[in-house]
Amino acid sequence: MTTPSRYWREIPQRYRLEANKCKKCGFVFFPPRLICSQCQNRKFEETKLAEKGKVLTFTIIRVPPQQFVDQAPYAVGIVELDDGVKLTGQIVDCDFEDLKIGKRVKIEFRKIFAEGEAGILCYGYKFVPE
C-alpha cells in the first residue's frame, strides 16, 4: 500500500530523477545517499540522471502484482543510462519483438499505478524507444 506520504517523499526522484554524486570518487547514487558505498565519503553534490540510455536486460511480466493487472503483459528492464547509472523501470510503447538488449531508450513520464479505485495516482518514469 502506497500512502500519500511515502509517495510524496520520492517525488524528486520519480518526477525529476534527482540523484547525488560523491564529491570524492564521483560515484552517482540514485536515490541519493548520505554516505558513499564506494569510498565512505559523506560529501555529495546534487545531480540529475541522464534521460537516455540502453537496455541491459529485460523481462516481460505476465503474472503481475495486483496494481499492475490492467497493464500486463508489460516489459520491465534495467537500463544503463548515458551517465552510467543503472535504473529499473518499465519499457513501454515498444512491441515485445522489437525489444532487444542494447536497444536505445529514453525516459517518459507515465502513471505507474493507481492505488485502487479511490486512492492516490502514482506517477514516475518509464522507458520508451528513443
Binding site: D70, Q71, E108, F109, R110, K111, L121, Y123
Partner: peptide, 16 residues
C-alpha cells in the same frame, strides 16, 4: 491513451 497515460502524463511530455 495507454492505461499508464492520462491528462497529467501527456501534459508533462508536451510541456517537456
Amino acid at each position: 491513451p495507454s492505461p499508464d497515460q492520462d491528462t497529467i502524463t501527456m501534459s508533462v511530455e508536451a510541456a517537456k
